[in-house]
């Protein structure tokens, strides 16, 4: 449907756990600079989808193609090296390090200097780390212990880390969960800005429909593992099937109701 060159192309993804068909025959694509939201009620298979994209969970069948290269079955770390950054629903950061060090480790990994043993880490990528922190508005927190950060700050830190490998594609699982409303808007605005500037494709899942409908270029709706609707925010908003699913779930669009 999109005429733009495809950054990510997903075809026929399937995943079952025991007897449960968590993801069925999911296909979609992401264009550079495009912000694509993946939504759906709890248990719709969003996170499973995500985990299959970056190799965290192996798919039963289907193909994931990144910039023309089939990355199905690759380890998360290999996928990352091909330019996919990721943030987590529940933040995963290094609690025994400072904020800057968290970013530095990602940068060092990107530079393939992980096995350098005789030089102090402080000498690596300091400026670059500070630049990334600046990008997400965290420059003042660089020397803070990561374990002390508020949740919203951790989310922003994760974004900075996700940008460390100069990604072509960002996978953001519930980027604004647990944040105050004002912070949510800020974070998404920031993400959108970065995505447009650097032509990064962003795929995110989100419970907050305000965020989704305000920032997504395109929306995919999952229900019971399958795509039931796909299109612009307006198209999706007016899709009767979507309404049925969500209204059945007691959730009305237009209200900022977190589903967590």
């Amino acid at each position: 449907m999109s005429e733009a060159p495809r950054l990510l192309f997903v075809e026929g993804l399937n995943k079952s756990y025991g007897g449960v068909h968590a993801v069925r025959n999911v296909s979609f694509s992401v264009a550079p600079g495009e912000i694509l939201a993946l939504i759906g009620p709890n248990g719709a298979g969003k996170t499973t989808c995500f985990n299959m994209l970056n190799g965290q969970t192996p798919a039963d069948s289907g193909r994931v193609v990144l910039r023309g290269q089939d990355i199905s079955g690759k380890q998360p770390r290999e996928v990352w090296r091909l330019g996919v950054g990721r943030t987590f629903q529940i933040t995963a950061t290094y609690s025994s390090m400072t904020v800057r060090e968290n970013v530095q480790v990602a940068l060092i990994s990107f530079q393939s200097k992980l096995f350098s043993m005789l030089n102090a880490t402080q000498r690596f990528a300091n400026d670059e780390a500070d630049r990334l922190l600046g990008l997400v508005g965290m420059e003042g927190y660089a020397a803070r212990p990561c374990g002390e950060l508020a949740y919203g700050d951790l989310k922003r830190l994760e974004l900075a880390i996700a940008l460390a490998n100069d990604p072509k594609l960002l996978l953001m699982d519930e980027p604004t969960a647990g944040m105050a409303p004002r912070e949510r808007v800020e974070l998404m605005r920031l993400t959108a800005q970065i995505a447009r500037e650097k032509e990064i494709g962003v795929l995110f899942t989100e419970h907050d429909m305000d965020v989704v409908f305000e920032h997504a270029d395109r929306i995919i709706v999952l229900n019971r593992g399958a795509i039931i609707s796909e299109g612009s925010p307006d198209q999706v908003r007016n899709d009767p099937q979507v309404k049925a699913v969500y209204l059945g779930d007691g959730l009305v669009f237009g209200h900022a109701e977190a589903h967590a």
Binding site: T93, Y94, S96, M97, V105, I108, T121
Partner: peptide, 14 residues
């Protein structure tokens, strides 16, 4: 305190 040490500590932290 080298990159390797940080990477190692990283595997411990997360």
């Amino acid at each position: 305190f080298s990159p390797f040490g940080y990477a190692l500590r990283g595997t411990r932290d997360s």
